[in-house]
Nucleic acid binder design. Structure first.
Length: 417
RNA sequence: CGGGGACUGGCCUAAUGGUAAGGCGCCUCGUUCGGGACGAGGAAUAUAGCAGUUCGACUCUGCUGUCCCCGACCA
């Protein structure tokens, strides 16, 4: 991709009212643009990141055996009346009337809708277990939007719902999903802690939150680095000597963190109101056991920026970087140099190398270097008089200082995501 | 929802009661060419909105809006 083809315009200074690092960097680098509080457009580079994150999530969901669907954002009031959540979630749910006076809500979550949907698909124990997920826009009238992408009003959520005959089946899938979630976050360059939390409205049992330790986080959790046990501060056990209540050995430490995912055992809370029943092998009608599992895509992206950056800009994990290479030329833009740059770009592009070519003219070398750092692709390729005479290119990792010269065909050693 | 702060061209900042100015960015020309280069020239839908005080308001007062921060809230 040529930089000149993108909507690309960086800013030296972030808008003064932005405090959150993720907002400052993503806006400066033109990955996103704020339309209103908590509502963002994703521009070409931001869109690429979002797509890559979504693909990782999708791969892990498919590996679980879940199938992808997509459900509407527009929900009728009646559906939400059945579970009592039209009133229960009124504060956070956008609710309005359409032209005919029909009452509509914008979906903040999809338990109600998915339960109805499952009614047609599930009638017998042989239909179970099943799991479906979607990657879809959610709307929540958050009382307080904050921290750039970390808490918005319109955002993409991957929500997974599983359906089971009984609790053991649900528990087994729940545990597999737990592992899938950790893997997703790990693939995105994040170390997450599985944290016990209250079940909220859903369940008396604990739910689990996936927390990433980060000073920008709005949550506080207690965790033990020794055994990995963690609880959020609402339910955290009081401990003697600040020792881990689980292993009794490690320090029971309080840290700031960001919730990047959460999972709930729903039991029959949604299946009963929706009359989602199945017949067991003896012909008895039983309510389906459900569980739900969510990941906020934009929040995940914001978290990655909070964790992976330096004073110059973002440092994207290779797995989700918008492109692998940032190619630029420095030195006087003699025709030979420019020609070599074009040649290198065209050859790499032809080989399918994921490369972003800073082909802007009348832009100083310093500015290109600064933008390369800000955008934060894993590798920077530089072409100059020095490299031209040797018919080589200079390569440098974004997070390392040293660069070296390689022959063009050696690029194949750097293609791995 | 309670509290606090901010609001001047696309972005940052100056003018604190008296001609709305500068930098980045943008356009033109020239010189540069390994870390946000330099010179000359140019353009711009800018004082958030509405009232009020005043001879005169970016500046003071009130109301409204928007954004940010702290707290509450967060299936």
């Amino acid at each position: 991709m040529r930089l000149s083809h993108l909507l690309f315009k960086t800013q030296k200074q972030a808008p003064k009212d932005e405090v959150a690092i993720n907002a400052k960097l993503l806006i400066r680098a033109n990955f996103i643009q704020k339309l209103m509080a908590g509502v963002y457009s994703f521009l070409p580079l931001g869109f690429q990141v979002r797509e890559r994150v979504i693909n990782i999530i999708r791969e892990e969901m498919n590996a679980l055996g879940a199938s992808e669907i997509i459900m509407p954002a527009l929900h009728p009031r009646s559906l939400w009346e059945a579970t009592g959540r039209w009133q229960g979630m009124a504060k956070i749910m956008y609710q309005f009337k359409d032209h005919s006076g029909r009452e509509i809500g914008l979906g903040p979550t999809h338990e109600e809708v998915v339960a109805v949907l499952a009614k047609t698909a599930i009638s017998s124990y042989v239909d179970l277990p099943k799991a479906v997920y979607q990657i879809q826009t959610k709307f929540r009238d958050e009382p307080r939007v904050k921290s750039g992408l970390l808490r918005g009003r319109e955002f993409t959520m991957k929500d997974l719902y599983s359906f089971h005959r009984d609790q053991p089946s649900s528990d087994e899938f729940y545990d597999r999903t737990k592992r899938a979630y950790r893997k997703i976050f790990e693939r995105c360059g994040l170390n997450s802690f599985i944290t016990e939390a209250s079940g909220g409205d859903f369940s008396k049992e604990h739910s689990h939150e996936f927390m990433v330790e980060c000073p920008a986080g709005e949550d506080e959790i207690f965790l033990c680095r020794l055994c990995g046990f963690a609880q959020n501060k609402e339910i955290a056990a009081k401990t003697k000597n600040h020792r881990c209540p689980h292993c009794q050995k490690g320090v029971w430490e309080k840290v700031k963190s960001i919730e990047v995912g959460n999972i709930f055992k729903l039991g029959t809370k949604f299946s009963e109101p929706a009359q989602l029943f199945y017949k067991d092998s003896k012909g008895n009608l039983k309510p389906v056991i459900m569980a739900s599992y969510g990941i906020g895509v934009e929040r995940l992206i914001g978290t990655i920026v909070e964790i992976h950056h330096d004073e110059k800009g973002m440092i994207w994990p290779t797995s989700i970087a918008p492109y692998l290479f940032y190619l630029l030329e420095v030195g006087e833009s003699s025709s030979a140099l420019k020609k070599f740059g074009e040649q290198v770009y065209n050859r790499l592009e032809k080989f399918g190398v994921e490369i972003l070519y800073d082909d802007r003219e009348k832009v100083s070398a310093g500015e290109k270097f600064a933008d390369a750092d800000l955008v934060g692709l894993p590798w920077r390729l530089v072409i100059s008089e020095k490299t031209l005479v040797q018919e080589k290119i200079e390569i440098k990792r974004r997070d390392e200082k040293e660069s070296r010269l390689i022959k063009l065909n050696e690029i194949k050693n750097y293609l791995k995501r």
